[in-house]
Write a protein that binds this DNA or RNA. Structure first.
Lengths: 324, 324
DNA sequence: CCTCCTGGTGCAATCGCTTGCATACCGTGT
DNA sequence: ACACGGTATGCAAGCGATTGCACCAGGAGG
């Protein structure tokens, strides 16, 4: 038995297909009693409107494309979830594409997606040049990066990182390291700038380390670099790197936070499961996702592009303590 | 300017739309020279075939639905990636749906997806009853669970867990705990059975703990339970729980592996970033994903349902050591 | 009694693409 | 010279929904 269509239901109810169609898409215009009969018949045979057919005439696919650079990076899954929740409310599904960090592949994937989605969400895109042209007139929102001319939502960690700096200062740290993330990363620059700005206004000497890979292994390397300095505390680029630092220090027999303090960024699952629990800057991932979808919807209806920044928040846990 | 269609290209090239269509879908049947001209024209205007229109006539959407119970659980992202890679080779995209552990929502989500995908992948579905009916004649493959009548691919950890048991035995452990996962979990039962089967054939006394939640917090609780026993080693249901155990033991000042040994399962990112690195059973996630897609494709072409089991593999790291 | 609305329904065109069939052209074998 | 087969192209009919417009009945107003 084939899938039921509006025609089979129309026949069963003795009405025309248009009426069946309207019973679903604009229920209020069909007679209440008839509408109920149609719905009942549809339910009985398990009718599901064919999205392709609908999409063909309406021009909407009900799909939102989501490009992430690395789905295995613990930062993204919660973001994906938040986006999905928001998309649900718009009766849309999420087409997830993992670029696996291949910046060069992004433009092609975008062009490919463009054909089948109503809008595009670019989470932390690795490439920037020409991205704007690729999306043509497809609604598109950038997450966690700024790209001229494209609406976006970013997480501003400036204030939280500076609060973290003051926190270290109060704990008596006077020499603090900063472990940079990949130099190509927008977030890495943003965070480094924030920490720099704090340091020059404080009594603390900042030691600039890196750049390191934004990975556990990068953190191991960073830990070795840290031990070559006399810093008593460090900012890691993100939590993943911070976990590597923690592991590297543990391997070297250095205790945290007694001998060194470590601060992460993002507050991914890892930050709460590692020992000691990481002091970190919590990103408002939930809101990031919701706002992104909202922005997408808005630029779909032709409103001017907008940039929204949400603030990260310092979360104190067990990886920071008084300077040795 | 609207999106180009086969008609606009046809006009530009002075041929009919069917020829343009064929130039893409069955290139070998159109004259080589003409084909090139068409492709060139298409490239120039950035033509992308409209998937909805194509889907309408072919009945294929080029979409694979993937239902996961919790995308934030670190087990799934690598699986999602593997599935995506495999789907790519079939020119398909992945429609990801996170059920957020709401077993009751699964049937409805499945029905909803059924309308717009060519096939459905159910990763560790939480509900089982009636799932089979819901999918009707939609190709569907179950991952990491067995459901009668549906093809599936599972990870069999029996041998690896038993190897892990022998490993503990050789290290001199004679009293070993087993921390159960949620009783509703298929994997939890499978793992518990395997460990049980090993224990009865060994010199080891098995202490059955739990069930605990398959989470970090569950692991904290499990650690407390462990400390109430005189076991010198423990199997945690999975890595996440194992990390909780590690943290709980650390909080209590108990050293791992000197005082207790801990074994996880799955080998998620966490297992490699925690200190000490977890000895665990590595799941062949990559193959799991590839096989699932392959199976999906096969049952799309009407072949009989199949069950494939892949073996997990014991990975020795730093969380196991000689009995105290 | 006739017109005018108005709410409810059907008709038919349309979205962009695929595909079975008809057609046209060319070269070959007889 | 003719039939035939093969290759390359066009025609037109769908796929399943949406939607502007025409139509019709029945009540209100003149």
């Amino acid at each position: 038995m084939k899938r039921p269509t509006i025609y089979s239901i129309a026949e069963a109810c003795g009405v025309s297909a248009s009426t069946v169609s309207r019973a679903f898409s604009r229920p209020h215009v069909v007679n209440a009693e008839l509408r109920e009969r149609i719905h009942a018949a549809a339910r009985e045979v398990g009718y599901q409107p064919n999205k392709a057919a609908r999409g063909l005439v309406t021009g909407r696919t009900g799909l939102i494309g989501l490009l992430v650079p690395d789905i295995t990076n613990p930062f993204f899954p919660p973001l994906v979830r938040a986006i999905q929740q928001a998309a649900d409310k718009l009766d849309s599904s999420v087409l997830l594409v993992d670029t696996e960090e291949r910046a060069a592949a992004e433009p092609q994937l975008i062009r490919h997606l463009a054909g089948q989605v109503d809008g595009l969400l670019l989470a932390s895109p690795r490439s920037s040049s020409g991205l704007k042209d690729k999306v043509n007139d497809l609604p598109c929102v950038v997450i966690n990066r700024r790209i001229r001319g494209l609406p976006g939502v970013t997480c501003d960690n400036t204030r939280a990182l500076q609060a973290a700096g003051r926190h270290l200062e109060q704990l008596g740290h006077r020499r603090v390291a900063m472990m940079r993330g990949p130099s190509a990363s927008w977030a890495a620059r943003q965070r480094a700038d924030a920490i720099h700005a704090w340091a020059v206004r404080s009594d603390v000497t900042l030691v600039d380390l890196g750049p390191f890979a934004a990975s556990f292994e990068g953190g191991l390397a960073a830990a070795r670099a840290l031990l070559d300095t006399d810093c008593t505390a460090t900012f890691a680029f993100d939590d993943l790197m911070a976990c590597g630092v923690l592991a590297g220090l543990a391997d070297a027999g250095v205790r945290v936070p007694e001998e060194r303090s470590v601060i992460g960024c993002d507050d991914v699952l890892l930050a709460r499961t590692v020992t000691p629990r990481l002091t970190t800057v919590t990103a408002p991932v939930q809101r990031l996702g919701h706002v992104a979808v909202e922005l997408l919807q808005r630029c779909g209806s032709g409103e001017p592009t907008e940039e929204i920044r949400l603030d990260g928040e310092l979360t104190l846990r067990a990886s920071t303590g008084p300077a040795a």
